[in-house]
């Protein structure tokens, strides 16, 4: 005989409250702004999907989105292979192992705006080591005025900052491969490439999926470092999505469009992460 009552609801109340305050209420506030217009005085007017319409069709948003895709694409295509390459060449035993691990972890421990500041100074041609050296070598380099230089700087900075994460994850994946696999490969006469292709890469696959997703999401949301270095310039050439969003929300105080922007931005990240994850795990399943 089962008794039916509603006591169970009390049990979930704490979680509901927690989630409400941490996620639902802030998100709904943004949703609230995104469908209204205000002229100050705490007066709000219903605007419907107008802001969404405006954002989705605005050239400014398209440009920022395009730059964002380019940025994320470039750092993924550099950081993933480079991280794997480094992991393959990191020492696995002896004193070199802890040294390498500490060195690889260092960039990850530096606060983001400090990373930005480091590179901002590093690249200056009057006092920065990099900028000054390039100047001496006769190479024109100025990240505040030249678009290409600005892009090169933020890309190299991100690679410097985050390749370690990929390398450490890949390294952990490599460490989990039993020695017997390498021995069997030698017995089978496998080449160095075959060992990588048929043993190391398959065993690293799940950690690389995580590395890929983390780097995708983080780079798509990046704000601090490029903002500190270039402030989005020269012109708007390094204005990535979140830099643009902050300009809109805080610089211009366009709350409605900024809220709509935020939601579209959020949905894009969510959608792409879901697509990547589904595609990659499906490839996994098909091969079984």
């Amino acid at each position: 005989m089962k008794t039916w009552n509603n006591k169970a609801w009390f049990m979930v109340v704490p979680v509901v409250i927690l989630v409400a305050f941490s996620a639902v209420i802030p998100l709904m506030t943004v949703v609230n702004y995104s469908v209204q217009d205000t002229f100050g005085n705490n007066q709000f007017f219903w605007a419907g999907l107008e802001w969404f319409n405006e954002i989705v069709n605005s050239e400014r948003f398209h440009d920022a989105l395009g730059r964002q895709f380019l940025f994320t694409f470039l750092i993924l295509i550099i950081e993933i292979p480079l991280g794997v390459y480094i992991a393959l060449h990191m020492p696995t035993k002896g004193w070199g192992r802890p040294v390498a691990l500490v060195l690889m972890s260092l960039p990850l421990l530096i606060p983001w705006n400090v990373v930005g500041t480091i590179w901002q100074i590093f690249g200056r041609s009057d006092i920065g080591l990099l900028g000054y050296t390039l100047q001496l070598l006769g190479i024109e380099y100025n990240y505040t005025q030249n678009t290409f230089d600005a892009w090169a700087t933020i890309i190299v900075m991100d690679v410097w900052h985050w390749t370690s994460l990929v390398a450490l994850l890949a390294y952990a994946g490599l460490q989990s491969i039993p020695q017997a696999y390498y021995q069997a490969a030698r017995i089978d006469g496998a080449s160095r490439w075959a060992v990588f292709r048929y043993i190391q890469l398959p065993k690293m696959r799940s950690v690389l999926l995580i590395a890929f997703l983390l780097r995708f999401m983080d780079s798509f949301m990046i704000y601090t470092e490029p903002f500190v270095v270039t402030g989005g310039g020269p012109g708007n050439s390094t204005t990535l999505l979140s830099i643009d969003l902050v300009k809109m929300a805080i610089g211009q105080f366009d709350l409605g469009p900024a809220a709509a922007f935020s939601l579209v931005y959020f949905l894009i990240i969510l959608l792409l992460s879901w697509v990547f994850y589904t595609v990659m795990t499906n490839i996994d399943k098909q091969e079984r």
């Binding site: 017997a180 021995q183 496998a190 048929y198």
Partner: peptide, 22 residues
């Protein structure tokens, strides 16, 4: 060896053929 070593991504056929092809 004592514990099985197979090349995960290959078919059984390719696994057996691997040393010969190498």
């Amino acid at each position: 060896f004592q514990f099985p070593v197979v090349y995960d991504t290959m078919s059984v056929y390719d696994n057996l053929a691997f040393p010969l092809r190498n």
